[in-house]
């Protein structure tokens, strides 16, 4: 009978009372926002081809891959490919190092990036500002290979700049490449140096979105610039900071391979504290790429990132639902 059929599981009843049997919420939404869906399609097709279909590579982590069988035909081997990582005794060390360094980079980096953005935006002097911003952008373009040479130039024992200066003042030279703890400062310093120009742009752009009338009103009301920054600028940046932080947390188990490989390199005595998952896996594959093992290590990193970001995103959703990633 028309219109009075009992509500099926999953059918959503509209207030007006008209509903058609067999129409799911998705189809209803599709009809209502047809154009929006259409606008979404190009990007969806793209990630289907370039991201989702290649996800089949994750299967390789659990298989013994051979060329003849391909990804789908190769036999399953359970967790065998994970053994090289977990039974080596190094798994915890490199995981810890990756987490620790990424967290330091995130926290210290964000502080410096926001600081730079705020100072640059609020200070006067149009040409000085532009000049400084351009200079800060330069390190982003220097390849880590060259930075590695510069770092070696600075810190090496015999002829490094640091030790030359120390010797000049009759101070005992320092063997930086044998002091793991020093690298808790050196690496974050270089990470900040490389990214401050690039990262601060996002915050600068956000600051530019502040309605100037609000700032003028505050100024008239007697708030000095420090107060204005604290109560207007920084709160306005909150959503941007949260989203940038969330995006970084989602990669917290993925180390910056290039940086560690070029700067720390093969200084084995530093590895206890500076070896990360990515460099560890790289060295293990030195006699030949084993797709299964490489895939297993990547899977390990991904699954941990996934658990962490889902949890953190859920936390954020509870307090500020607008700022959550998904």
């Amino acid at each position: 009978m028309l219109g009075v059929t009992p509500v099926k599981q999953g059918l959503h009843q509209k207030k007006e009372g008209t509903y058609i049997r067999g129409v799911t919420p998705l189809m209803r939404e599709l009809k209502k926002n047809k154009i929006l869906f259409l606008m979404l399609i190009p990007a969806l097709v793209y990630i289907l081809i370039f991201n989702y279909i290649p996800l089949s590579g994750l299967l390789v982590a659990f298989k013994k891959y051979t060329y003849a069988d391909g990804i789908f035909g190769s036999p399953w081997v359970g967790l065998d490919n994970f053994k090289f990582f977990f039974m080596s005794g190094e798994a915890w060390t490199v995981t810890r190092n990756t987490l620790v360094f990424n967290t330091i980079f995130l926290v210290v980096g964000t502080i410096f990036d926001v600081l730079a953005a705020v100072l640059v935006s609020e200070m006067s002097g149009k040409y000085f500002k532009r000049l400084c911003q351009s200079f800060m952008f330069l390190p982003f373009f220097m390849s880590w290979v060259i930075v590695g040479s510069i770092v070696y130039n600075m810190f090496n024992y015999e002829y490094g700049v640091l030790n030359t200066i120390l010797r000049f003042f009759h101070i005992q030279p320092i063997d930086v490449y044998n002091m793991p703890k020093a690298w808790y400062f050196i690496l974050p310093a270089f990470s900040i140096w490389k990214n401050i120009g690039y990262n601060s742009i996002i915050y600068i752009t956000a600051i530019m979105g502040i309605n100037p009338e609000i700032k003028e009103a505050a100024e008239i009301d007697g708030a000095n610039i420090f107060l204005r920054i604290r109560h207007i600028t920084i709160p306005h940046l909150k959503p941007t900071i949260i989203i940038m932080t969330l995006l970084a947390v989602g990669r917290i188990l993925r180390g910056n391979f290039e940086m560690f490989y070029q700067l720390v390199g093969t200084s084995s005595r530093l590895f206890e504290h500076t070896d990360i998952i990515d460099t560890y896996v790289f060295r293990s594959m030195i006699s030949g790429t084993d797709f299964g093992m490489v895939s297993a290590a990547a899977f390990y990193q991904s699954i941990l990132c996934f658990v962490i970001i889902v949890f953190v995103n859920w936390c954020v959703k509870k307090y500020e639902p607008d700022y959550a990633l998904f």
Binding site: I47, N51, I53, L58, V60, F299, S302, F306
Partner: peptide, 11 residues
């Protein structure tokens, strides 16, 4: 797609 990556081989 940013968390899980199939790796170099399938790409």
């Amino acid at each position: 797609t940013t968390i899980f990556n199939g790796g170099l081989l399938p790409t």
